[in-house]
Simulated scan of single mutants.
Amino acid sequence: MIYTKNLAYAHPNGRLLQFPDIACEGGQALLITGPSGTGKTTLLHLLAGLLKPASGDVRVGNTSLPQLKAAAMDAFRGKNIGLVFQQPHFIASLSIRENLLLAPSLVKEHASEERLRQLAGTLRIENLLHKKPAHLSQGEQQRASIARALMQSPQVLLADEPTASLDDHNCASVAQLLASQAQQQNAALLIVTHDNRLKQIFRDHIQLS
């Protein structure tokens, strides 16, 4: 589902980051770990098409992300790649429901109320949809962030340190939610993290150095 080959990124400070090849199929989960400064977040941004590599390729299915122009990349990302960040980013003035429905509309896709209700039920946020983001707990915001990333049934789900600020219970809960949702939708799940607790949950992982 998502594959990389000879991927490298030229950092603005002059450092060249080189990454191991990745192959992650639909329904598979891959943990990417490593100490600070090894380029975990940079790699995730390359996988999402948010950064252009200095060399190498990133493919989602048959599509080469570095070959897409900016507008085409934005449209492709909106339809095919779901992003979950360490700190959820919502529009504070909108309700959770409005935030979730906004994501598809940004890429000119139909925002499905049925899809919203399905995800809200699965992720246990159906009673929170009317609330503003500031009124949700950290764990609730993270579940809402996962729901937003899944609204378009993406082929690839990318998570950047999704459990770093969570206690053990919420860490396990969020990890299991990500894994179960990826399996249900046959999406490739990649998590970049320094949270060693996740190694007990996910079997497959790559260590950056």
Rank of each mutant, 00 (worst) to 15 (best):
P66S: 02
L65W: 07
A54E: 10
V58P: 06
R77E: 05
A54R: 03
G61Q: 04
H89L: 09
A75E: 13
S55C: 10
F76K: 00
G61K: 02
L65K: 03
N80W: 13
V84I: 12
I81P: 08
P88K: 05
L68R: 01
A54S: 03
D74A: 07
P66E: 15
D57W: 00
P66F: 10
N80E: 04
G82T: 08
Q87R: 15
M73W: 02
Q87G: 06
A75L: 12
G61Y: 15
A54H: 05
I81H: 07
F85A: 09
R77H: 03
K79R: 14
R59L: 12
A54Y: 13
R77L: 03
M73I: 07
K69A: 07
V60C: 10
G56Q: 00
D57Y: 01
I81V: 15
Q86V: 05
I91E: 04
A92L: 09
P88C: 08
L68I: 05
N62M: 11
V58T: 09
F85M: 10
A71I: 01
H89S: 08
S93Y: 14
P66Y: 03
D57G: 00
R59H: 07
R59A: 12
L65H: 03
A71D: 14
V60S: 05
L65E: 11
K69V: 02
A70Y: 04
V84P: 10
H89Y: 10
G78R: 01
D74L: 11
V84E: 13
H89Q: 05
L68D: 08
L83V: 08
N62W: 14
F85E: 11
Q86E: 14
A54V: 12
S55G: 09
N62T: 13
V60Y: 08
A75V: 07
F85N: 09
D74P: 12
M73T: 11
H89R: 12
F90P: 12
V58G: 02
G56E: 01
A70C: 00
P66W: 09
I91Y: 13
K79Q: 07
F76L: 01
K79T: 12
Q67T: 10
D74F: 10
Q86I: 04
